[in-house]
């Protein structure tokens, strides 16, 4: 399963009433609070075995499943290089 699909599944699992696709801005939908943001970061770190550094904790990296998937790809690529 792709990282994008896993991220979408996680978001849909938490907010089953919302219809979300991979390019939809989840902040614009209005249900991201600090609790969900924390859960989202923990999910990404646990699922993909990465640590998201402070400088990557920017809103643009978390707006869409596409953006989060790209972040995961960058971080796992960094791991491979290291």
């Amino acid at each position: 399963m792709s990282s994008k699909t896993q991220i979408l599944d996680f978001i849909r699992g938490r907010y089953p009433q919302a219809e979300i696709d991979e390019s939809q801005d989840i902040f614009a939908l209005g249900f991201v609070n600090s609790l969900f943001a924390m859960e989202l970061v923990m999910f990404v770190e646990k699922t993909f075995g990465v640590t998201i550094p402070n400088e990557e904790l920017r809103i643009d990296n978390f707006r869409t499943a596409d953006a989060m998937s790209a972040l995961v790809a960058r971080l796992t690529s960094d791991l491979a290089v290291a």
Partner: peptide, 17 residues
């Protein structure tokens, strides 16, 4: 301490947790 911007609330969430 920690990120600024939208994720700053996570510091508080994690600390309180």
């Amino acid at each position: 301490l920690g990120p600024s911007g939208f994720t700053a609330g996570m510091v508080l969430t994690g600390t309180l947790d």
